[in-house]
Each structure stands twice: as structure tokens, then as C-alpha cells.
Simulated assay, not measured.
Amino acid sequence: MNTIVLFISGPEIVVIMLIVVMVFGADKIPEIARGLGKGMRQIKDATNDIKQEIKDSSENVGVDTKSITKDINKEISSVKEDIDDLTGPVKRRF
């Protein structure tokens, strides 16, 4: 499962949770969480359906997805190496 990192630390999450409790009230939080969970599940299911449809279509046409994926990963690795070469010893530190 892929996750998105939002660069939110522990104290920031606590502040956000306090604001949510103050705005919606403690009794509404389970309903909101259920609604968000259902929405995320629907998005995940729709994404999986689209992926499966693309995979089925490519197999029907005779496209070799493994070789295409390998080529794309090779290009991505190449770009990452180029970026690392450009940045060199200079790295951001937060």
C-alpha cells in the first residue's frame, strides 16, 4: 500500500485533533471517521478497478506490461542518479 507523507509531526497532529474536537464535537468524530474510511475505500476500489481494466485491455491487445514497467523503472532510476549527481554533496536538512 502506498502512503503519502505530509510532513506532519506528532505535536501538529495533536493540535489538528484538538481543533477537530472543538469544531465537530467528540460525538461526531466516529461518524466523520466512518465517512472518511468509506470514501477512501471507494477511491481504492475505483483505482483497483481502473488498474485491472488497463491490465486486461493491454493483455487483450498483446502489450507486454512487464517490459514496459522495467523500462520505466530504468528511466526513473536514471533520472534519480542524474539528480543525485546534480545535487552532489549539497543536501537539505530540516
Score class of each variant (00 low, 15 high):
M22V: 07
F7C: 03
S67D: 12
G35T: 11
T69K: 13
T87R: 15
K74A: 12
K74N: 13
T3A: 07
D56S: 06
E81C: 01
V90Y: 07
I16L: 14
L18K: 15
G25F: 04
I19L: 11
K55I: 06
L86H: 05
K55D: 12
V14P: 00
I72P: 01
F7R: 09
I19M: 07
K91H: 13
D84E: 15
K74F: 06
L86A: 10
D49C: 00
E31F: 09
T47L: 11
D82G: 09
L86G: 03
V15P: 00
K66E: 05
L6Y: 15
S67A: 13
D71F: 12
I54Q: 04
N73R: 15
D27Y: 09
M17V: 08
D64T: 03
G10L: 03
I50H: 05
L6R: 14
D71A: 14
I72R: 08
Q42L: 10
K91M: 04
P30V: 10
R93Y: 02
E12M: 12
E81H: 06
I8E: 04
G37Y: 11
V15F: 06
E12G: 03
A46K: 03
G10Q: 07
D71P: 01
L36E: 09
K38D: 05
I13S: 04
I29W: 07
V14D: 08
F94L: 10
N60S: 04
K44I: 07
Q52M: 13
D82R: 14
K91L: 09
K28H: 08
E53I: 02
R34C: 03
T47M: 09
D64W: 04
D45R: 00
F7P: 00
T47F: 08
G39R: 02
I54L: 10
I19P: 00
V20D: 00
E59I: 09
E31I: 10
V90R: 10
I72S: 03
V5S: 13
K51V: 05
R34T: 07
I13P: 00
D71R: 12
K74I: 03
V79L: 15
M22R: 11
S77G: 11
P89Y: 13
